[in-house]
Simulated scan of single mutants.
Amino acid sequence: MAQLILNHLTKDFGSGRPAVADVSLTLRRQAFLALLGPSGCGKTTVLRMIAGFEQPSDGSISYGERRLSDAERALPPEKRNMAMVFQSYALWPHMTVAENVGYPLKVRGVSGATWRRLVGEALSLVKL
Rank of each mutant, 00 (worst) to 15 (best):
S62D: 14
F53I: 10
R28M: 09
Q87R: 10
E72P: 00
R66K: 15
K43A: 10
Q30Y: 13
E65R: 07
D70Q: 08
E72T: 13
D70N: 10
Q87H: 00
A51Q: 13
A34T: 14
M84W: 04
R48F: 14
A51I: 03
G42W: 08
E78Q: 13
E54T: 03
E65P: 09
L36D: 12
E65Q: 14
P77W: 03
I50M: 14
T44P: 02
V20M: 06
G42M: 10
R28W: 01
I50E: 09
T45Q: 09
A74K: 08
R48Y: 13
V23H: 01
T44Y: 04
E78H: 10
A19P: 00
E78F: 07
R80Q: 02
Q55I: 06
L75I: 12
T44Q: 03
L36E: 08
A21V: 05
D58L: 12
D58E: 14
G64V: 11
F86Q: 09
I50W: 12
L35K: 01
T45M: 05
Q55E: 11
G40Y: 05
A21N: 14
F32P: 10
M82G: 01
L25E: 01
S39V: 09
V85W: 03
G42C: 10
R73D: 13
R73K: 12
D70G: 05
M49H: 07
Q87S: 08
P38V: 12
E78M: 07
R73C: 07
Q87Y: 07
T26L: 04
L25F: 11
L47A: 02
I61S: 00
A34E: 02
A21I: 03
R28T: 13
